[in-house]
Design a binder for these strands. Structure first.
Lengths: 235, 235
DNA sequence: ATACTTATTGTATATTAAACAATAATAAAA
DNA sequence: TTTTATTATTGTTTAATATACAATAAGTAT
């Protein structure tokens, strides 16, 4: 007997998907519409879902993200679990869950994942029942999101800040395949909440063997073009 | 209506409790006996339990640790969740769970916590149904423990290593209230898997304003006594 | 008194981080 | 075609931090 595609309505996963547009960090959110007695209510939530009964957590995170965006093979990392019993007590959230899952919903513990993706990757924004979109992280942090998703995004942001601190390789998950040192520096400073000196930053990067110059220059800019670099994995 | 003391049999917490005896890291484990057809089987497990239906995860971790050891007000920190569906498939583990909880047990997702405690704290080792004991971490890492508890300990160890790296204050959770610089250095090196130079380590510690010398010396040693220090919290 | 054990301390060198601005290349404007 | 505007690129000096290295002090045990 298989439990395949039978939901476990007690545990869910939520993905905080970060992107970088060359200037700012972005987060991928799902826009939802709730039909209430007195009309329609719009808000946003993280891509996430309850897990299947015999599915591992990491597998569930990949699957759900793929279902909601079409994305595959992306950097995904578990960072924290959220179990406040009140997190699933908002009647609007319960109504929405019971409508979309057709299950009786009680308390749900959710496991938070962060994903880092190149913002130019093709995303299936429109799905049968959902619409995904990129939003400015700074704006999102001020919004009222579904469930405890604001708190989850906060924690996820802390997590990637902390981790990119000790693992610079993660930065390149967010950059395009070919990038300039300026883009790298702006991303670095955005994540670290710092303002690096341009010369010192060039020196730092020159010592990273995994950042390699290309015989190619930036195009389409109305000033001196910068050299392009690529990331090369090393052990 | 209250859900108090109603179990949620889908989610549990497990605590990896670390101690330090001046030489080595220790882990607190629960010894259990399983009655099988052909006799008794003994093994060890982490202190942990399924949570209550309306209980927060952090609260559950504190409560369970208190119930199993009598400990209160200790440093407890969530580090990772474990949801492999096979983690609760060992018949011996299921039998034991169903006997101790009187519930039908299916898949359980567990949330891992680490605790750091002073090894000389009074612990209620013997309880009605359980016995707790300190074990050498190195020995434990070679044992076959219940469920996926070996994996959980591994991850918990990684977590505290990582965190003490960037937050030296955590070291003092494991040391006695009065300690020598040698003890501090041995703990530091055990955690960091390093061998610090004695002179350089003294210099490093001299710059930590939260390590303050006392007018008191070590006693009961058969050689020159070392000065005692205490930890003083700072912001 | 002597041997044994651990505690305590300083200096010189290497590495890393931080501060700081002038020139080069290109596109757009005049 | 010259000038202006914009961003790219590059070195040196100084400060801070980390590393390597061993002799003497203090107390216990024989």
């Amino acid at each position: 007997m298989s439990n395949e595609n039978i939901y476990n309505p007690h545990v869910s996963i939520d993905c905080v998907v970060f992107g970088f547009n060359g200037e700012k960090l972005k987060v991928l959110l799902i826009e939802r519409t709730i039909k209430e007695n007195n009309g329609l209510y719009n808000d946003k939530k993280l891509p996430g879902s309850i897990i299947f009964a015999d599915e591992d957590l990491d597998t569930a995170a990949s699957r759900v993200l793929n279902e909601l965006t079409g994305l595959k093979n992306i950097y995904l990392s578990q960072f924290h679990s959220f179990g406040n019993p009140k997190r699933t007590e908002n009647p609007r959230d319960i109504l929405w869950l019971e409508n979309t899952t057709q299950l009786k919903i009680g308390r749900i513990v959710t496991v938070g994942y962060v994903a880092l993706i190149k913002i130019d990757r093709k995303i299936q924004f429109k799905n049968e029942n959902t619409t995904a979109n990129w939003f400015d992280l700074n704006e999102v942090l001020k919004m009222n999101l579904a469930f405890d998703h604001s708190e989850i995004i906060h924690k996820g942001l802390e997590y990637i800040r902390h981790n990119m601190d000790i693992e610079p390789h993660l930065l390149f998950e967010l950059l395009p395949r070919k990038f300039t040192i300026s883009q790298l520096r702006i991303l670095y400073d955005t994540v670290h909440q710092s303002r690096s000196d341009v010369r010192n930053f060039q020196k730092k990067v020159a010592q990273w063997p995994y950042v390699v110059p290309l015989d190619e220059m930036e195009t389409g800019v109305s000033h001196r073009a910068a050299r392009l670099y690529k990331y090369r994995k090393t052990k």
